[in-house]
Design a protein around this nucleic acid. Sequence first.
DNA 1: TCCCAGGCAAGGC
DNA 2: GCCTTGCATGGG
Length: 304
Amino acid sequence: MIYERLYNKIIIHNKTDFNSKHILECGQVFRYKILSIENAFCKISKLNNITNEKFTENLCELIYEVITLDKIAYICEYNEFYIIYCNNNFIDYFINYFDLNSDYSLIKQKLSELNIEILNKAINCCYGVRILNQNPYEVFINFLISSNNNIKRIQLIIEKLCVLCGENKGDYYAFPTLDKLKSLSLNDLRSVGLGYRAEYLYKNLQNSAFNITELNANSDNLKERLLNFYGVGDKVSECILLFGFHKLNYFPTDVWVQKLYNEYFDNSLTDRKLIAKNLVNTFKNLSGYAQQYLFYYKRCFDKC
DNA sequence: TCCCAGGCAAGGC
DNA sequence: GCCTTGCATGGG
């Protein structure tokens, strides 16, 4: 157990299996940002009226804000531990969200036993990555927007979408509900900079069979069902499976994974579907974890 | 100015 | 089935 659950916060004692920067910046999630200490103190104090609690802001090194659906959490990094603050009704929600009941020491050990040099290097750099348990609907929308796009722009578009039609929660805007998104016109969607992806979103939202919130995580043809949605292909569907449904036996393969594969595994193979197949064959039920360590490493640590 | 980004659908064979 | 092309947008 790496955490301690208190009535209005979660304390993470183990900084080798949890790193806020790694978790948030590895590409699985888009609504997060670094807060200044003063701003964070002000926001956190409002959460649960914790005015009588000593918030040791002067010892805090780094604070991230994370928003998922209509909920917000603050991850405060200290020298020896982390504290996650959220509304006290959502403590259990965020324990699950940050996947705190999974043993990442064991996962990393199993992966390192495969003796793949580049993976061990990636795990060494990206040691604090965890696969979040995100809401499938939110992940679906996010990764529909992600295609042929870059992460900075994806974040910007999602934020604009939230400001356009998400509920104003005071300190932040909630992720739009399905009904709110359905009420938008094609031009509304275009106005947030979606480009041609506006039609992907619009067609799905206008489709009465758009039932992403009702998809059964345990149905064995989940990927085929996802592929039926407009704008969802092989790669996007696998991102939804991994990040939205926590299906760890997929290895979403994009330009970055292909670059890494060509550099460290086989430089002649360019078919991403085949690359993904080979990688899943190698990593089996640990594919999703391996994917995040390698993807994040290739994007952010490769030049070091 | 061209190239690129967590790709995909459509059309031609 | 496989291969090619067009696609909105903004940053480097």
